[in-house]
Nucleic acid binder design. Structure first.
Length: 325
DNA sequence: CCGTATGTCCATATTACTTCA
DNA sequence: GATGAAGTAATATGGACATAC
């Protein structure tokens, strides 16, 4: 199975970020379209890069375009609700983090960050009743509950070297000296933006990762983890869809098998009940050696059965033509 | 050229936490 | 309010690949 997202074949670094300005000012609703191909793991578009952070290789681009040619079974994963606009500034910036001049306004989510960008977001107002409140208030309460450990998380997290930032393995704890994992909730807008970018590229190269992290005011590691989890979720959902499809196929075939068995029984009963039919020459099954399909053949008819010969109805020559319909 | 060490990214499984019914 | 299920961010692990030596 293959996830054939419409990624486009342009290897430009990250067009979404360029598009982000176009997105601004709209109420966005979108979904992720997905296509089912043939295999899954090996077909994942992998972003080959050097340590310098190159873009997609030609091979990857080829695979991307190939994947999109598979006959798709569409799976809309995200009928996304419009971005809330409760905050005044959100009329201008549905994705408030897109502006560099946050000034504690219109920023929600990831208050635990800060540090490297120098944004003091403690006083941020909330742009979404659900996302913002849950994201910030929840964290703040959590800080109150958990004390210093999480407070350090809020105030010091976010430092990840640009070069080291691409690493997958546990830099945060080492860098921040934290013991417990921290669970944060991305805001709706952040998730929406990540979804949009996932629609364009379901994998990230380091440049894209860093750019996206900067745009969303997240750590590159968070963006990377989000994409990994997103791919896993996509695959899981697609597996469920495939499972359903196979289940239906199985049911159809079972029903077909049942019908054919019944038909066979009826034919046998008919054959047993009609003496005339019994006088007919036996119909034999032959296997076409080339196409390995079964067809019936009949010996030359006898004189008394020449008038009506039902077996002729099933006799075809050459045999492999019989199976063509 | 071959083998080894290192670094990076990915898939996958799992854990920990949040949200909601 | 307690609780379990579902969703998801984060972590751990191992494999594949590229590069340097």
């Amino acid at each position: 199975m293959e996830l054939a997202l419409s990624l486009g074949d342009t290897p430009k670094p990250f067009s979404l970020l360029e598009k982000s300005q176009k997105i601004l000012g709209k109420d966005l609703g979108f979904c992720v379209g997905m296509a089912v191909g043939k295999s899954d793991a090996e077909s994942n578009t992998r972003c080959k890069e050097t340590t310098a952070g190159l873009l997609f290789s030609a091979d990857d681009d080829q695979r991307r375009s190939d994947s999109s040619s598979d006959p798709p079974v569409q799976l809309d994963l995200l009928p996304f609700s419009p971005v809330h606009r409760t905050h005044p500034s959100s009329h201008k910036f549905p994705f408030p983090w897109l502006t560099e001049k946050l000034g504690g306004d219109g920023v929600e989510g990831n208050m635990r960050r800060g540090g490297d960008e120098g944004h003091d977001q403690e006083g941020a107002s909330l742009s979404s009743p659900n996302s913002a409140v849950s994201s910030f208030q929840m964290d703040f309460c959590h800080v109150l509950r958990s004390g210093k450990r999480d407070f350090e998380q809020i105030t010091t997290a976010g430092h990840e070297g640009a070069d080291r930032g691409t690493s997958s393995r546990g830099s945060d704890e080492e860098e921040n000296g934290m013991l417990a994992r921290k669970k944060l909730r991305l805001s709706k807008e952040q998730s929406a933006f990540l979804e949009e970018s996932f629609k364009e590229h379901n994998t990230l190269n380091p440049k894209q990762k860093l750019a996206l992290a900067k745009q969303l005011n997240l750590r590159p590691r968070q963006v990377e983890v989000w994409f990994q989890n997103r791919r896993a979720r996509t695959k899981l959902k697609q597996t469920e869809v495939d499972c359903e499809y196979l289940k239906k196929c199985c049911e159809t075939l079972t029903e077909e098998n049942r019908r054919l068995q019944k038909e066979l029984q009826e034919l046998r009963a008919l054959k047993a009940s009609q003496p005339f039919y019994m006088q007919l020459p036996a119909t034999t099954l032959t296997m076409c050696p080339s196409c390995e399909r079964v067809a019936t053949t009949t010996p030359p008819p006898t004189s008394h059965s020449a008038a009506v010969n039902p077996s002729k109805l099933f006799s075809l020559s050459p045999p492999h033509q019989a199976a063509s319909n």
